[in-house]
């Protein structure tokens, strides 16, 4: 499967958690960690292994005022980057 029909999930050993010391969400992976921007956090909150990329884009488009195409670009870009860096499976 390719494109936005794919369903992203966290790879084994990857944890997305809230850090109360930094008051921020962090993504923890084997010997790696990622600090996230606001849109990154919103995207990852929707990664549950059942929602497709399309589903994530729809959800965000319903809640934020930005044009859908712009949201889609952000979502695909962020997930492909995290896939290349080993945190997310597409």
């Amino acid at each position: 499967m390719t494109g936005t029909a794919r369903t992203p999930s966290f790879r084994p050993g990857v944890k997305f958690r809230f850090d109360s010391v930094r008051d921020a969400w962090v993504l923890l992976a084997p010997e790696k960690l990622f600090l996230l921007d606001e849109i990154g956090v919103e995207i990852l909150k929707l990664v549950d292994g059942t929602r497709s990329i399309d589903g994530i884009i729809d959800d965000l488009a319903a809640r934020f005022t930005a044009p859908r195409a712009e949201i889609a670009r952000d979502v695909v870009g962020a997930l492909e980057d995290l896939s290349a860096r080993g945190a997310v499976e597409l």
């Binding site: 850090d19 010391v21 930094r22 962090v26 923890l28 010997e31 960690l33």
Partner: peptide, 9 residues
């Protein structure tokens, strides 16, 4: 952990 360390090696 209290100090904010996220990972232990």
């Amino acid at each position: 952990a209290r100090l904010g360390v996220l990972q232990i090696h």
